[in-house]
Amino acid sequence: MTRSHWMVHLVGGLTLWCLWFVLLYGGLGIMCSVASPPLAAGQWTWINGVLLILTLAFTVLLVTLARWCWYRQETEPSELQVYVRLSSALYGMSAFAVLAVGLPVGVLPPCA
């Protein structure tokens, strides 16, 4: 693997987090403007469902990447190990951030 490859991983997790955040917030806005379910429906609407699936998909992806990086530690030259470990931690934290920020999807109604 090249060195710049690890630079990509260093920012990869949080870039994915940002992307997910844009999809989450933008998607909510667009879905609410297209077909807004009534408030009485509470949090069990199709919009929450879509956002929940999106959140879980990103969490799984980020956890997978974190694990992948973690197991790459041994195979990389020693001067790069620090970036590998940092990348793994950052993927893990991004997964946590996705899950934590996405949590209210199961609690709050979407468009009010």
């Binding site: 989450l24 909510l28 934590a100 996405g102 979407p110 009010a112």
Partner: peptide, 12 residues
């Protein structure tokens, strides 16, 4: 803004 969207930003 919808409370759900606010919650995302609140937690972040």
């Amino acid at each position: 803004i919808p409370q759900l969207a606010q919650a995302f930003f609140s937690i972040a």
